[in-house]
């Protein structure tokens, strides 16, 4: 199937695809044609940014000021301090660099493994005909609803029994498991947007499923993979629960978030530190997003789908 339910243009599918590449070149047009549209977009952008801006400013303010006056007062009465960042980075005897490495070591495989598995599974659901396919697909995507919390004790028991507890493997495996239902669901959607004729053509040429997957579909899906990769990266990077449960008791394994969560203090009231901590942990995800952003601007299927 294609993405479309053509309403306006009953153009035969094949004919349309042929002209698409050319048409795209013409397509650079401005959408901000009406001022109303620009204003709506601007309002949304401002609404979405102001709260975060508030936190950014807050993270540079002295503790007492934070409790006594709003962050917007800095515009009339600027007082800034780096104390909060100092305490977050160097207080508490934690080696921030080591935690950063842990976060990275946790995150990369926890992104690569589920995406690879989900791509293969999504391919099977989209392009291999086998009995029970739809039921199985629905079952897999329905698993999204299982709260991670109910899986903690069964999974940890298995890890303890197999001697894996407290190693990176438990976190990689767990994140992969938890990501799979959504990853399969999303990637399946992208996978199906690729015109069937492409796959058919390759099949006519005698290509097997593995070849079709790697040579035909994968290149087209690169942007979609990058996009989902960013989501998965963020979820893993910001995860606290999985790390606490499976890396617990293993100081060599715990990631950044565990330390940031502790900044709230034993009784949870040190938000001047939380503000700084939140920005320390946001840096890398932001860099990843910005560096992969060209994919988001281009769309999730690489370029035009060529015939």
């Amino acid at each position: 199937m294609t993405t479309t339910t053509p309403v306006m243009a009953p153009v035969p599918i094949d004919e349309r695809r042929l002209t698409r590449a050319e048409r795209r070149a013409v397509a650079a047009r401005t959408k901000f044609s009406s001022p109303a549209a620009s204003i709506i977009a601007l309002v949304i952008a401002v609404l979405w940014t102001v709260p975060t801006l508030g936190l950014l400013i807050t993270s540079f303010r002295p503790e007492l000021d934070i409790r006594r006056s709003g962050w917007w007062t800095v515009f009339t009465d600027p007082t800034f301090t780096l104390d909060n960042y100092n305490e977050v980075l160097y207080g508490g005897g934690t080696n921030f660099a080591a935690l950063f490495v842990n976060s990275l070591v946790i995150t990369l495989p926890a992104v690569v493994i589920p995406i690879t598995l989900a791509l293969l599974a999504a391919y099977a659901f989209a392009w291999i005909d086998f009995p029970g396919r739809n039921i199985l697909f629905v079952a897999v995507f329905a698993l999204q609803v299982v709260p991670i919390q109910v899986t903690l004790i069964p999974l940890l028991s298995i890890y303890v029994d197999t001697g894996l507890a407290g190693s990176f493997w438990t976190i990689w495996l767990s994140h992969s498991i938890f990501a799979l239902p959504l990853a399969v669901f999303l990637l399946h959607n992208f996978m199906k947007e690729i015109p069937a004729s492409l796959v058919e053509a390759a099949r006519m040429d005698g290509a097997g499923h593995v070849k079709i997957f790697f040579q035909v579909l994968l290149p087209l899906l690169t942007p979609a993979i990058a996009a989902f990769g960013v989501f998965q990266f963020l979820w893993v990077w910001n995860d606290l629960l999985v790390a606490l449960t499976f890396a617990g008791g293993a100081p060599d394994v715990v990631p950044l978030t565990v330390r940031v969560a502790e900044l709230a203090g034993t009784r949870g009231s040190d938000w001047y530190l939380l503000a700084a901590g939140a920005f320390v942990s946001i840096v890398l995800p932001l860099v990843v997003f910005l560096s992969l952003q060209r994919y988001f601007v281009r769309g999730l299927l690489a370029g035009s789908v060529k015939g």
């Binding site: 977009a41 949304i44 952008a45 979405w48 940014t49 975060t52 936190l55 989501f231 963020l234 910001n238 606290l240 978030t257 940031v260 969560a261 709230a264 939380l274 901590g277 939140a278 920005f279 942990s281 946001i282 995800p285 932001l286 997003f289 910005l290 952003q293 988001f296 601007v297």
Partner: peptide, 15 residues
């Protein structure tokens, strides 16, 4: 414009 709206996704729940 997209980066601005995307930003909250990058912030942890605690943040």
């Amino acid at each position: 414009a997209k980066a601005l709206v995307f930003l909250p996704m990058a912030i942890s729940m605690v943040g």
